[in-house]
């Protein structure tokens, strides 16, 4: 599974658990309009940390936080050498 597939899958799982309806997950969809609240994001970040071993939120500055689905995916994509 690619990082993109993993992130999108976990978004769908969390949304289903929390009874949230998702719009189509396009790269330019702002996270604030995704229907997910801060608890959903907290769960998502925790699950992605379990799955990838990475927690980019804890090491990043707030100004670098992703604002769209596409930015969220690339947040978790390994940095190319």
């Amino acid at each position: 599974m690619t990082t993109r597939e993993l992130v999108l899958q976990e978004i769908r799982v969390v949304a289903a658990e929390q009874d949230k309806t998702l719009p189509p997950l396009t790269d330019d969809l702002p996270l604030l309009e995704s229907g997910l609240d801060s608890l959903c994001f907290a769960i998502l970040v925790s699950r992605l940390e379990d799955a990838t071993g990475a927690d980019p939120f804890s090491s990043a500055k707030a100004s670098q936080f992703p604002r769209t689905v596409g930015e969220l995916v690339s947040f978790y994509e390994p940095v190319d050498a």
Partner: peptide, 12 residues
């Protein structure tokens, strides 16, 4: 509690 960068903590 599990530490969370979003909400401070979440429940595990």
């Amino acid at each position: 509690a599990k530490a969370s960068p979003i909400t401070g903590a979440i429940v595990a």
